[in-house]
Design a protein around this nucleic acid. Structure first.
Lengths: 148, 148
DNA sequence: GGGAGGTCGTTAGCAAGAGTAATGACTCTT
DNA sequence: AAGAGTCATTACTCTTGCTAACGACCTCCC
């Protein structure tokens, strides 16, 4: 259409923020609907983060997930009730609590990952290799957008 | 690391589905928290879709947003109460209702778009041109993932 | 030492938004 | 014209986010 602009040289179009916002919101809603698991997306995300980062306090976890501490309290309570996360007292500060993924939690994590990837993986498989490569490049950028 | 694979030739890594799922969920949660508007993300998305697609019935809108009709009823009710959407009877089927964005709705849409893009646009501006281009390529793919 | 004030986690209560089930009005098929 | 199906809505529940407030604990400073 426009010979002066191509994909690699144009700057951010004014619509990019809006398009990204809407497509992310929609895909998120779609994904949530596909979770055929006994763990919610929020719980799974918290559990996965805890596994990746090792031991964390509830506040650290809340900050990482960009959620307020009371919300994380509820998420952690659910995970703890399911024996997927264990809490132990902090070594020196008795106000704090240290969370860690239990062995059953780790096992369930792998199992759930495989199950819950099914829907998305099926759809990813329908894409061309170039499209998947484009998503691979986008994922770390999306991660960075939600930090900062 | 692996000289046999590079970004363009590798197939979908097993982790892509999971990474994408988590990063999309997190960014979605982050975006939702940034909406300083009187319209929720859901309402805005429905209004935007309605503007883009022209007139639609509530069921069509619900299907497009991958939401059940009762949920869309509530969203539409809120939009109608704010005079952003108008409903009129279907020409031939009196069970159905036809929805359309009003002129104030259209105006508000543009205004809100500019306002609500602020957070994301700021973060997009911090990226390199290559990273933005990567997101530009990813957006239509994300869109396609949430359809089908 | 011993308060004053800050921090961590939790509880309580509220709001948004999604779901299922059921209903009322209407259309279509036979 | 009557039974079956469809569209939108209502009623109710659930999840998950938030803010406000609190109790337990730490730390700083006199």
């Amino acid at each position: 259409m426009n010979v002066m602009m191509n994909e690699t040289t144009r700057t951010a179009r004014s619509g990019l923020a809006e398009e990204l916002r809407i497509s992310v919101a929609r895909l998120s809603r779609r994904l949530r609907a596909q979770v055929g698991s006994d763990l919610s997306v929020t719980q799974f995300s918290a559990l996965a983060v805890l596994e990746r980062h090792g031991e964390m306090t509830p506040s650290e976890l809340a900050e990482h997930e960009h959620v307020k501490p009371p919300s994380m309290t509820r998420t952690v309570a659910a995970l703890e009730a399911a024996r997927l996360v264990a809490r132990r007292p902090h070594a020196t500060d008795r106000r704090q609590v240290v969370l860690a993924v239990t062995e059953p939690g780790r096992a369930l994590l792998g199992e759930h990952r495989r199950r819950k990837e099914a829907w998305l993986a099926m759809r990813l498989a329908e894409l061309t290799e170039e499209e998947r490569a484009a998503l691979e490049r986008a994922v770390p950028i999306l991660e960075r957008l939600s930090r900062s």
